[in-house]
Amino acid sequence: MRLSQDQMKHVHGWLLLTPAAILLVSFTHYPTVATLINSFFSKGTAIRPSRFIGFDNYRSMAEDPIFWKVLGNNLWFALGTIPTSIALAIAMALLVNRAMPGRSFVRMAYFTPTILPMIAVANIWLFFYTPDIGLIDKVLGWFGFAGHNWLGDPSTVLPAIIIMTVWKEAGFFMIFYLAALQNIPPELGEAARLEGANRWYFFRRVLFPLLMPTTLFVLINAVLNSFKLVDHLFVLTKGGPDNASNLLLYYIFESAFSFFDTPYAATLTVVLLGLLAAMALVQFFVLDRRIHYR
C-alpha cells in the first residue's frame, strides 16, 4: 500500500506529536482520570478488596468536619495572602522603578525571598517565630511584652503562616510588575503631571488599568499558589495545632500517606482540581473582558 503525499504529511505530524503526547497522557491525563475513578471505590484491605461505592466517599467527605475546617483555612489563607502580596508587589515595583541611589540593591533585596526554596524560608521563619528565643519574641521582649508561642496557638498560627507566605511571594510578583511598568512610556506620567494629576490619581486612572493584564496573570498564579504551596507546613506546623493551620493539599497528603486512605485522598484531589478549574475559568472569562490589552 502506498500513501499519498497528503497522507504522509498527516503521518509525519502525528509522529512528531507522539513523544509529547505520550508524556502528557501517561503523566497528566491518565493520573487525573485514575484519580477520578479511584474516588468512586472503597478503601481495599487484605480481607475486603476495593469495590465500587458510587458517591459514598463524597458523602463522607461532606460529613468530615476536618475537611470543612481545612477548606475554610484555605479560604482564609487565600484571602490573607493574595490581596496583600499583590498590593505589596505593586508598591515595591513602583518604589524601585524610580531613579534612586542603590536601586539595584533594593531590587535584589526584594527578590531574594523568591530565590530561596520554601523549605529554607520556613526554616528562617521558624527561627523568627520560636517562642521566647525567636527574633520576634526577643524584639517584643525589649519593649516589655511577654513571649508568645506564635505557631502553637491556634488563633495566631494561620496569620503567622500568611505573613510568611506574603513575604515570600511579593518579591516574585514584583518582578512582573516591574517589567510591566518599564513598558509604560514615561511621557504618560509627564503628560499627567502637566495637567496637575497627583501620583495617586495617575496610579488610579492610568497605571493600575495599564497593569491589569499583569494583575490577571499574577492573580491566577497567586490563587494557584495558595492551594499548591504547602511545603512550609511540613517544616513549621504539620497542619497543627488541632488542624488550625491545615490546608487542603496538606490534608490530601495526610490522608494518602499518613492515614493510607487512598480513595479519600483521591476524592479530596478531585475537589481540589474542580476548585482550581472553576477559579481559572472565572478569572479568564469575567476579568478578561474588563482588561485592556495593548
Binding site: L188, R193, P209, L210, H292
Partner: peptide, 17 residues
Amino acid sequence: SKRGVSMVFQSYALFPH
C-alpha cells in the same frame, strides 16, 4: 501644572486604555 503650559509630545503620550 501651575505654569500655564500645555504640551504635545513627539509620541503623543495618549493613554492607551
